[in-house]
Design a protein around this nucleic acid. Structure first.
Lengths: 138, 138, 138, 138
DNA sequence: GTGGTCTAGACCACG
DNA sequence: GTGGTCTAGACCACC
């Protein structure tokens, strides 16, 4: 089964970002495995009724991030997952999302216990694809 | 005690939006009551080290939305008569931040245990200064 | 003194890449320090007589790499240098250049001694801006 | 003993170009003499696990440039009468690879000592199989 | 067929 | 003023 992309052109999140998010999510959830091929730039652009450049940008950023791989004349594929960033850099990149989530949750009146439970429940949904037992190094 | 604002200028979310979000949340969570005064545009701009225009824009949009009230020469205050969110509504509002945070954390390679610990640690940091008895610092 | 960019539009290396390379090089050599502002997208595009989008792409990639920082409505600046990648990832990223250099050098008939000397001499030229004494961690 | 080709399909340099470069270098460094036979298109394509068209293209361009000669039904051979590069020319040809390698290494945060060590280690790996007495493997 | 690059020009959001 | 996004359409290189 191929991926199904859903974009909402009017939203505040840019289209290319919606695409990268969905691919990231699919990789995380295991719907896309290492080596899987993605739809071609032109094909995806056609099904989403957007400009091929927009798809190319999404793919390009993921390639630069090491999530995807591309070779001339061949389809873009999912790259093997590897730990790319140092612990410090990973914390730095996660910080805004952490801050936004915790602030919003508290301001909306949730208790710490409720917040912790929500996070755990959500994490459990992804449990199928844990990134490996890990060797502790980064 | 007035609100504590937390802004991250480097992030992708515009500063004025971070302010409006936090005020909205605080009002609907009951931390800001009808009639409460907000810091003046200049004062807030100074403490956040941002352009006064940015604060003015945030206040302006909230006044336009009926969340705040402003009168010539007087402090901006919270407008009366806002119904609080229902539990379901609060969950719905929190959902995007939850999703963004958990996805980003897993994508960066953090383990569920690490993620839970980070959230708890951050919650503890907030708890230490939210009780409301006030320590004079802001 | 501002940077002077030199591009050769006809070459095989894409223009946006020539720009990123020169900025990277300038940062490395210390000509650009952390916090320094770069020319605006439009300004640089005009002086180089290229499309603003091309400059924007170069800046954008460097921002995503953490070399530059940008905030809405403000100039793009040089970000503080930090170790972003794990040792393994750094080796992986350097590999193609290492392979290309050593292969070419040997095939051109240089002896190992000559090759080593060339590298050391080139490294010495950058000596002024060593990335810090380092703490051994990555 | 025939040439040992090293290609990296994932890199940005096209495969056919990697082949022509290596043949060119070998010829001009004297590792391939006038009249020497090259592996057949199909054989080389098989050992490199690439498309035969790609090998054919590489050979074709070299024939067009007068570096190789091909006759119906016979192996492709090295054409006679090529003057070797002068020392200065060899240095000039190596310059881009040197520059790219050193810049990339420093940008990634490697120390001069590490860089020197990597080059020496890589040179040693080549040395162990270049002496020409041949160990039967390729 | 595939992806990669560049241009031209438009519109928006931010400060 | 700044950068960010998107479109339309072109051309190239590679396989």
């Amino acid at each position: 089964m191929a991926l199904e992309f859903h974009i909402s052109p009017g939203g505040s999140v840019p289209i290319y970002r919606q695409i990268t998010d969905q691919i990231n999510h699919a990789v995380l959830a295991g719907h896309l495995q290492s080596g899987d091929a993605l739809p071609s730039v032109r094909a995806l652009a056609e099904t989403l009724v957007i400009n091929p450049n927009t798809v190319a940008r999404a793919y390009g950023e993921l390639v630069r991030d090491g999530v995807l791989e591309s070779q001339q004349g061949k389809a873009v594929t999912v790259a093997p997952r590897r730990q790319k960033y140092t612990k410090a850099e990973r914390l730095r990149r996660l910080e805004p999302a952490l801050q936004a989530f915790v602030s919003a949750a508290l301001l909306l009146g949730f208790t710490p216990a409720e917040i912790g439970a929500m996070v755990e429940r959500r994490l459990a949904e992804f449990a199928s694809r844990t990134p490996g037992k890990g060797d502790g190094r980064d």
